[in-house]
Amino acid sequence: MAKSHVLLLFLYAAMGGLMIGEVGGMNHIVGKSLGWTIPQNASFYQDWAAPRTFAVGDKLVFLYSSGMHNVIEVSKADYDACTQKNTISVHFSGPTVLKLAKPGDHYFICGLRQHCLRGQKLSIKVAQGQVPVESGADSAKSLFSFRLVSVLLIFVLFMPI
């Protein structure tokens, strides 16, 4: 009886391992509890970003209601002028989650009305990630293989003979 409980415990642990997703970078909720909105002061988002380190593989989470705001990645010139002449990407559906895929400077604004001019803009510097990222197919295949072998090993070790 006790052996069957131990077996069930290991099986649940193995199933939990199968359900856990691939470990990735940090999730940064832009603006913390304020989210992505018009801030009280124009430096709010830069003040929020200043103590943080951003790396390739991290995700920026922009919390906002669709139709109220948007997230547009722009060039530095567009960021400085609050214009949309050279957009890199445009996102209208909130919340928006953006995975940081390239190192370097990244610039984000809200393109609605005068939001950018009122401080709804963010610039960050993304560092190269510490751990090399495997290609999606190779990473998924190796992760699946590891989990499959783990489950089979548990069955072999704890099956009654």
Rank of each mutant, 00 (worst) to 15 (best):
S75C: 07
A42M: 10
I161G: 12
L152Y: 00
K59T: 03
V6E: 11
E73R: 04
V97D: 05
V90I: 14
V23A: 13
A127W: 02
S135L: 07
H106L: 03
G67Y: 00
V97R: 03
W48N: 05
H91N: 14
H115V: 07
L143Q: 10
A101K: 14
S66F: 00
E22L: 08
G111P: 09
I161K: 13
F10Q: 08
D78A: 08
I29V: 15
G17D: 07
A81T: 00
K32F: 09
F10D: 01
A140F: 08
K32Q: 14
G67V: 01
S150R: 08
Q40A: 11
K125Y: 15
L100M: 02
F92C: 05
E134C: 09
L11T: 10
T83S: 15
H5N: 09
S4A: 13
G31R: 01
A101Y: 00
S145L: 15
G17K: 07
A140H: 10
N27W: 01
D80A: 15
E134S: 12
S123P: 02
V23T: 09
I29R: 07
L148P: 06
A50E: 13
M159G: 09
Q120K: 05
I29E: 09
L148F: 04
R118C: 06
Q114L: 14
W48G: 05
L98A: 01
G129K: 10
L100W: 00
D80E: 15
E73D: 05
